[in-house]
Design a binder for these strands. Structure first.
Length: 548
RNA sequence: GGCCCGUUGGUGAAGUGGUUGAACACACAUGCCUUUCACGCAUGCAUUCAUGGGUUCAAAUCCCGUACGGGUCACCA
């Protein structure tokens, strides 16, 4: 039996050889320095915030260098596949407006000349390369059962040896002759294809990571699985094949991959490929009981990108926040160039953190408030509406019915040099502004003045003697002061502070009574503007509510 | 346990041997301004860069040990 026949027996249904694929996927024609990056998520459930983070970084690096960024779906683990997993990824990418150059559109269609971009459709490619490794005696079949493996691990633990399939542990199967293998195959025993590692644990290799710098490792000496028994590749093998064929220049991925670097380097060499450059991004962490840990899908709702959509944190704010995590100098740049597009900022590996940052909701919300304070009221309204259509159906009717009032409300103190920062999430808008168009049985948040009689007196005096809907803000407020003097409250804050005992209170207290009477709340935007929006009739009605 | 990596205020961090008396931002505190809140302004918040030792005229920055934290050791990615 020749080695070719042997390889054919092990992988009988391969359509093409590796040469075919190497010719099919030509080198990309890009200018020097252009980076080809990618994200390669697996569709195992919801989209992780870390995946979004990697997507933003990978995209930025490609775009700013005139390169290409693509999306590849890693669905090689049949067991972990989740229904709609791919759709969820595609949705998130769309929601966050990540501009990929090459990507699957759905299970059938795709954009880009280096596909398929869904790994499960690339089985023949991987097998072609695996077959080549078998022919070159760089890979071999392994019939090891779960039980045998477990037994081996136990022995290794008992002897305090390194755990894994390597050296003497692999020697038995490595030594199998082609005839012995043939017998097992014909007997129907399942097998995987393993790498025949040439490395030695005693040799050191140094790998230069774009973010972490030089990292020294022992060489890989493990005979890792390349092809599982179903003929589907493991992550490692798919990585080497795909990122070569797809022309990836820089592999940006989470730093949980650092420790597989020696394997990956060996794989590239075994395949006769040039390894790409690696950039291992620090993972986003979360603090629990005083300890840091990787933000977790299971425990942390904020690990899921949907969380932000549901809460109504603007896409833009999340992106800005993730950019500040990627390069902390982004924040300074953004502060200095508030009107610039994020794309004008240049991301650099040198400025990326080597250790994981804690996720900071406060900071995200601050960024969000800043962002929402800077857009126009109309734009804001449209964003809220869009959000409500998916996440708050009940709110839509009010949004549409009271569109003018809502926009006017959002517009209070907005078009000024330093706008208010009242809102951080779309989900808090409704409860914050509902009093503007709906005011029945309010809960009044009275502050300093709580006596009902006093409140009624102030309001009655105001509506009967001072209120005039045509007043300018200045006149309006001067009248407030006048009324204060008349009712025994201080109209001048400085005077009041000098002799607080001479007065029943001050103009702030009186204003607050009016504010609470009209809105129910002690904190609102500018009261004059609110009164203009709700109008005379409604003001009279709301004050009358208290007289009874 | 083996192998990697990391450790600068409550948080993100700047810092690459000497203009650092450790930037900037978030948070927090106080005061001012003020019709509330917010905004804004001012001030405060690490006598010190996990820790012990070493190199040096000089160290957060370089070296070694220790502690702590993280990652990884699958036919998962």
């Amino acid at each position: 039996m020749t080695r070719e026949e042997y390889a054919n027996m092990l992988l009988p249904n391969v359509l093409h050889d590796r040469k075919y694929y190497e010719e099919k996927y030509q080198k990309r024609n890009l200018k020097p320095g252009a980076m080809v990056t990618r994200i390669a998520p697996s569709p195992t459930g919801f989209v992780h915030i870390g995946t979004l983070y990697q997507a933003i970084v990978a995209n930025k690096l490609a775009k700013q260098s005139g390169g290409v960024c693509f999306l590849r779906i890693e669905d090689t683990d049949q067991k972990r596949l989740v229904e709609n997993g791919i759709e969820q990824i595609l949705e998130a990418v769309k929601a966050y407006q990540i501009p990929f150059d090459e990507y699957p559109i759905d299970m059938e269609r795709e954009v880009g000349a280096y596909g398929p971009y869904i790994q499960s459709k690339r089985a023949d490619i991987y097998q072609a390369f695996a077959k080549d490794l078998i022919i070159k005696d760089l890979a071999y079949p392994s019939f090891l059962t779960e039980e045998e493996k477990k037994e081996m691990t136990e022995k290794q633990q008992k002897r305090k040896q390194r755990i894994g399939y390597y050296g003497i542990w692999a020697s038995k199967e490595r030594a199998l002759t082609m005839e012995e293998v043939k017998e097992k195959v014909e007997a129907g025993i399942p097998y995987v294809i393993r790498l025949k590692s040439k490395g030695s644990f005693d040799n050191k290799i140094v790998i230069e990571d774009c973010i972490k710098g030089k990292i020294e490792f022992p060489e890989n000496d493990m005979d890792h699985v390349l092809l599982k028994s179903d003929g589907i590749p493991t992550y490692h093998f798919a990585h080497a094949v795909d990122d070569t064929l797809m022309g990836t220049t820089h592999v940006t991925r989470g730093d949980e991959w650092v420790s597989s670097l020696p394997l990956h380097i060996e794989l590239f060499h075994a395949l006769g490929f040039e390894p790409p450059k690696y950039a291992h991004l620090a993972t986003i962490q979360k603090e629990e009981d005083g300890k840091k840990r990787k933000i977790s899908k299971r425990k942390d709702p904020e690990a899921n990108v949907r969380f932000y959509s549901e809460k109504g944190i603007p896409v833009e704010a999340v992106k800005i926040y993730l950019m500040t995590l990627a390069n902390s100098n982004f924040e300074e740049w953004f502060l200095a160039n508030p009107d610039s597009d994020m794309d004008e900022f240049e991301l650099h590996f040198e400025n990326m953190s080597t250790s994981g940052a804690l996720f900071d909701m406060e900071k995200l919300l601050n960024i969000s408030r800043n962002y929402l304070s800077r857009i126009s009221a109309e734009e804001f309204y449209n964003q809220i509406l869009q959000w409500a259509e998916t996440y708050s159906k009940d709110f839509i009717e009010d949004l549409k019915t009271y569109k003018d009032i809502i926009i006017a409300t959002l517009n209070i103190e907005r078009n000024v040099a330093k706008p208010r920062k009242d809102y951080g999430m779309y989900s808090e808008i409704e409860s914050n502004i509902k009093y503007m168009y709906h005011f029945e049985n309010p809960e009044y948040e009275w502050q300093r003045i709580t006596d009902k009689k006093e409140i009624v007196e102030i309001l009655t005096t105001y509506i009967e003697n001072y209120y005039d809907s045509s007043d300018t803000e200045e006149v309006w407020f001067n009248k407030m002061k006048e009324m204060c003097d008349k009712l025994g409250y201080a109209s001048n804050m400085k005077e009041y502070k000098k002799n607080p005992d001479n007065y029943k209170g001050n103009v702030a207290d009186v204003s607050t009574v009016l504010r609470v009477a009209l809105t129910g709340r002690s904190r609102t935007p500018n009261l004059y503007d609110i009164m203009k929006i709700i109008g005379q009739e409604e003001i009279t009605r709301r004050i009358a509510l208290l007289k009874n």
